[in-house]
């Protein structure tokens, strides 16, 4: 049986381990930081499974593969919330809504009345919006925990201090930058708020020319708010400017957020290649799986499947780029 060692237990590494295990392999999994946590950028993701909304700035291939993500996560035993995405814009930024509608599909226009039916607390606040009814979201930290637990049930534990054996699958995210010269970090900042005064049941995106924002409900009055996109590479703390901008956008969505408790301010860097699409890259006895960019939970299932197919059958994956430097 093929011997495989996966480096990195973030969303990429755990997904590949899951796919290999489902094909009867028993990969090893090494991550010096141990179980999934704040060291992994997938820890701070939004967890939106929103392929159609992403088409606003992403290539069609992201939509095509992203459509399968919700089923995959559900099949792993992860709770996926299927309530769609509501996209809104303040009335003075309506042009943004028109542009968003033109760039995307699988949405229907909603008026004030429908918005109030979907999210009663937003009644009277927005005159127009778009509803992407087939989209969903999950809780990233919960998803990582489920993958890890299921792997542990199959005897695949995360080793913290070990050397790889067999074929190495490098899924270290931005840490692999030491070996992948064209990988860069795209910084993202996020907030976690507790705000029981506001009840939103689905992902809401608020369009704005400078500060587009999304709010993902985590349940029990907890909301994840994100996320900036800054070409600054490194991993720093959240800047005051970003925090202020995100909080004022949240306040613009619903004034109730003014009373929220700030549970967390998080910042990390998404690993990305120049075209912002993921890659599998084979070099010697190492297969690199990286570049999920802002599509970690949306594309990890596809990239994991491609990696596992390649390892078990030699089938050349769509995201393979051996020719790249």
């Amino acid at each position: 049986m093929t011997e495989v060692t996966i480096l990195g237990a973030g969303v990429m590494g755990l997904s590949i381990a899951t796919e290999l295990a489902s094909r009867g392999l028993t990969p090893r999994l090494i991550d010096p930081a141990g179980k999934p946590g704040a060291h992994a950028c997938s820890w701070r993701a939004g967890g939106m499974l929103a392929p159609y909304c992403e088409a606003e700035s992403a290539e069609p291939v992201v939509v095509r593969h992203g459509r399968n993500a919700a089923d995959w996560w559900q099949a792993q035993g992860v709770e996926v919330t299927h309530r769609g995405t509501l996209v809104l814009a303040p009335s003075r930024d309506r042009a943004e809504l028109d542009r968003f509608a033109r760039m995307t599909e699988a949405h229907s226009p909603v008026d004030a009345e429908t918005i109030a039916t979907l999210e009663p607390e937003l009644e009277g606040r927005f005159a127009r919006g778009l509803f992407f009814g087939t989209e969903s979201h999950l809780n990233p930290r919960e998803a990582l925990r489920v993958l890890r637990d299921r792997l542990a049930e199959k005897g695949i534990e995360i080793e913290t201090d070990a050397a790889p054996t067999g074929l190495t699958v490098d899924a270290r995210g931005l840490s692999a930058r030491d070996e992948l010269a064209d990988l860069r970090g795209v910084r993202g900042e996020m907030l976690v708020l507790r705000c029981p005064e506001v009840t939103l049941t689905r992902t809401v995106r608020l369009l704005h020319p400078r500060i587009p924002l999304y709010i993902v409900p985590r349940g029990e009055g907890i909301y994840m708010i994100g996320a900036t996109m800054l070409e600054t590479g490194g991993k720093y703390r959240v800047t005051a400017r970003s925090a202020v901008e995100m909080l004022s956008a949240a306040y613009a969505l619903h004034p109730g957020f003014a009373e929220a408790e700030i549970l967390e301010l998080g910042s990390d860097a998404r690993p990305a290649f120049p075209d912002n699409l993921p890659r599998l890259r084979r070099r010697g006895n190492t297969l690199y799986a990286n570049g999920l960019y802002r599509h970690g939970y949306l594309l990890a299932p596809t990239v994991a499947r491609m990696a596992a197919d390649y390892i078990t059958t030699g089938q050349r994956p769509e995201f393979m780029d051996e020719d790249h430097p």
Binding site: R184, L230, E231, T232, Y236, P274
Partner: peptide, 13 residues
Amino acid sequence: RREGGAGQDFHNL
């Protein structure tokens, strides 16, 4: 202002 500092990768691009 926003893309400076450590954004060496982007500057190289």
